[in-house]
Design a protein around this nucleic acid. Structure first.
Length: 507
RNA sequence: GGCGCUAUGGUGCAACGGUUAGCACAUCACCCUUUCAAGGUGGAAAUGCGGGUUCGAUUCCCGCUAGCGCUACCA
């Protein structure tokens, strides 16, 4: 395979916030595509808007990408450090007539009120103005020598530097190819003379590029072959196709991927709950599960397969499977994916996540990584069927790892009500203390024998014991749990619970 | 307002002219059961509307409607 044919793609977030789930999905698609095709994945930071840009957020975005398991081959490359390239490109467009200097004040067009823009079009056919709401065609576009000199003089006297606008053809159409949406063609009359280089703000000297210019110049320079990005860019792509043409380059293949919406079908926002990747990692989702879920939003392997681990995703991903319809972020489905991973991952793979969670909860013990590793893995395996998120290991299952746990009020209420319990549990504790062999069947027999001789149902003791040794109404099967916790601690906890049980039954 | 994109159960995807319209999540019922889960079985639930094209439309075309996107010297 020649290196020239290697696909090159990029993910280009703007550091104006954390990594959004939509951005994450776009990053995943780019990454999967690059890895599937044996191509190159580049990370680029689009920080050309000095007012919105927050450099300190870059690390957070990078962390989120790493958490997702995404690695990049080149970058991060910062646009703010390549301003000269954009300026040179604008210069070239100016020189070959594809752009012109605009001396208008930025406020003139801010807000996009087309009505006031129309008066700039004096000299053109009046009837055409009424029929079609024309896109911005600045008067500066057709300045004659005298007018230009005057504008320049005026600007100079005010210390104002003009912006550079693209000279969009009056007639004709502009087309481009999209791997998802097919060939697109739009009327040039519908495209405004968009800005390429902004006029410097007071106090600035650098002439910063707008998104369109920087994006195209970078994609050209980076030899990007496939631009995979959100469908919100679909309508703006003709502008970029125009820039490629002006710069004498062939545009890449575009692949616009559908957006991810909130449950009410509107753009995802904080109203819908967490929108940042970081918050899902903090909540305790497994990155692979989260990624699996996101990948299936707007993409399908073509069949009904859903549980797709990294290797399968890499093997099966293709742009052909990308959908054209927006998808809704369905939290319950995400949770289902997480429980699937929690239950099906090889326990050795899950262990590091559990260890991290226990460390976070400050109940981690180093021996679990060493001498007691086998016990640790067995215990995780015992617990995981009842977990949904990582913190469950340190919360509901806390009693497996620490003596510092409390009795859940609802559990006490439910299983410590029977008046016979204080006497029964005292006997049970001593029976266990006297038990020589600590194994599942022996523990089972002791309890059932006691229940039989006392004339109560085994369930009464089982349920009460569960609360006594773990503090929870919900836990793995009792005798398995007792084995994991150990005889000493079970007996101790049983004895320790006696006062609380008495208090509960008599209250 | 203009331009564009999209349209299969509540949700995510299959079916790319011929299927009793499939799978999964969620939901309901039952089974299993020492709790709670998991698991198993079964149920309810969809081709937005209207025209075409065709022997035959979920699938192709047109209109409508709805949703979304773009319409910034933001990306």
């Amino acid at each position: 395979m020649s290196t020239a044919s290697k696909p090159r793609v990029r993910f280009a977030p703007s550091p104006t916030g954390y990594l959004h789930v939509g951005g994450a999905r776009t990053a995943i698609f780019n990454w999967l595509f690059a890895r599937h095709e044996g191509g190159i994945f580049i990370l680029r930071i689009e920080d050309t808007d000095v007012e919105r840009n927050r450099p300190e957020l870059v690390d957070g975005i990078l962390d989120s990408l790493r958490w997702l398991g995404i690695d990049w081959d080149e970058g991060p490359i910062f646009q703010s450090q390549r301003l000269e390239m954009y300026r040179a490109a604008a210069e070239k467009l100016l020189a070959n007539g594809f752009a012109y200097l605009c001396y208008c004040a930025p406020e003139k067009y801010a807000g996009g009120d087309h009505a006031e823009v129309e008066e700039v079009e004096e000299g053109e056919e009046v009837e055409e103005k009424k029929s079609l709401l024309k896109k911005q065609r600045c008067g500066c576009r057709n300045l004659d020598a005298a007018g230009r000199a005057a504008a320049e003089k005026q600007a100079a006297s005010q210390g104002f530097q003009p912006a550079v606008r693209f000279r969009v053809p009056e007639a004709g159409t502009t087309a481009f190819d999209d791997a998802v949406f097919g060939r697109r063609e739009v009327q040039n009359a519908e495209i405004e003379d968009f800005v390429l280089l902004r006029s410097p703000k007071p106090g600035q000297t650098a002439r910063l590029p707008t998104y369109h210019l920087a994006c195209v110049v970078d994609d050209m320079e980076m030899r990007i072959t496939h631009v995979i990005r959100g469908a919100d860019h679909l309508s703006n792509t003709p502008k970029q196709a125009l820039i490629y043409g002006g710069l004498g380059a062939a545009p890449p293949i575009f692949a616009h991927v559908p957006l991810i919406l909130g449950p009410d079908k509107t753009r995802m926002s904080k109203r819908h709950g967490a929108t940042s990747v970081g918050s899902y990692s903090e909540e305790g989702f497994l990155p692979e599960a989260f990624r699996n879920f996101l990948t299936l939003l707007g993409w399908s392997p073509g069949d009904d397969a859903q549980f797709l681990r990294t290797a399968e995703l890499l093997e099966r991903f293709s742009l052909a499977g990308v959908s054209r319809t927006n998808a809704i972020f369905d939290r319950p489905k995400l949770e289902w994916f997480n429980t699937q991973y929690l239950q099906k991952l090889p326990v050795e793979e899950l262990a590091p996540y559990v260890a991290a969670e226990l460390k976070r909860a400050k109940i981690w013990r180093e021996e679990w990584a060493g001498a007691a590793r086998a016990w640790f893995l067995r215990t995780i395996d015992l617990i995981r069927l009842r977990t949904r998120l990582l913190p469950d290991f340190s919360a509901a299952a806390r009693g497996f790892f620490s003596d510092d746990f409390s009795y859940d009020p609802a559990a006490m209420e439910k299983f410590w009500k029977d008046a016979k319990l204080p006497a029964l549990m005292a006997k049970l504790a001593e029976s266990y203390a006297a038990l020589a062999e600590w194994n599942h069947d022996a523990c089972d027999k002791v309890l059932r024998d006691l229940a039989a001789s006392e004339g109560v149902k085994a369930g009464l003791l089982i349920n009460a014991t569960r609360v006594a040794i773990l503090g929870q109404a919900v836990a793995p099967p009792l005798f398995d749990s007792m084995l994991a916790i150990g005889k000493e601690r079970v007996v101790a906890r049983l004895r320790q619970a006696l006062p609380a049980i008495s208090a509960k039954t008599t209250s």
